[in-house]
Amino acid sequence: MKNFQYTEASQPAQAVQQIGAGRDTKFVAGGTNLVDLMKYGIEQPDTLIDISRLELAKIEKTATGIRIGALARNSDMAEHPLVTSQFPLLAEALLAGASPQLRNMATLGGNLMQRTRCNYFYDISQPCNKRQGPTAQAGCGALEGYNRIHAILGLESGDLNQSCIATNPSDMNVALAALDAVVNVSGPAGQRAIPIRDFHRLAGKKPQQDTTLAPNELITSIDLTTPQRAGKSHYLKVRDRASYAFALVSVAARLVVESGRIQDVRLALGGVAHKPWRLTSVEQQLIGKPATEASFREAARQLVAGAKGFEHNAFKIELAQSAIVRALQTVAA
């Protein structure tokens, strides 16, 4: 690992000031992703600002729901009574991710910023638009390579060799997408709130950019609004082993059913796109429909409409639909 200068921020405002002053400066908290990337030479910051001791780890009630500080550890979030009682979907997704050791280290903010696990992004001998940036005209190693874990949705309609077919690896992000989380960030110009659907982005022509967070902004917290109506939720994760593996496909589902009819539904998919995949138009069409397999199957078909399979991942198109149906049947039961 290349050496770097290490500093510590004592206040969020100071952290923002410090990151704005450095040339190639990054925040570090849990380090579970960044330190790994630095070992591979994918990230090579000159300066790391340790933000892990900022007072941003609280989980507290708000007027409309809860606020989770950016430095809350994944394990703390997953076991916090406010999360387990009001947002069991988030707790379930968090516990489906990583290992107990990693969950003890990884923070909310870091998980939001988690980078893809694409093998070609991780291998610096391979071409990668995400790692090298589009101006390098590197191309995408995964396109003609081993692309079993890659995206099937949200792909650029133009030349994919200029773009990226990687997926967002986070389980937490999928649950947050289904729950309409709002990401609060602090920058030189002050605070702003970013709805989760606008926080992560599709690769498009800027494959190097995973999120809409500016390089000099600091995530401070997320807000979650408690759903109006009681419902049931489930995070279904399909992976190559029973635990401790990234999702091939995952589904975050929340359903409210009354007298056999769907009153409210949230559906987000993981492992299929550059960001958690959610189509509110599909959810709207489910409202008022009977909570039956036929309705679920139709929604699943619509949610993956336009999916594109590559040499090794075409199975995901069918798998995603089956997973959606199973997740909805689980919460409808």
Partner: peptide, 19 residues
């Protein structure tokens, strides 16, 4: 040490001396 280096870092644009 960190407080001092943080202050230095906040004003320094040049690459870190240590590196």
């Amino acid at each position: 040490f960190l407080k001092q280096s943080s202050i230095m870092a906040a004003f320094a644009i040049t690459p870190p001396a240590a590196v």
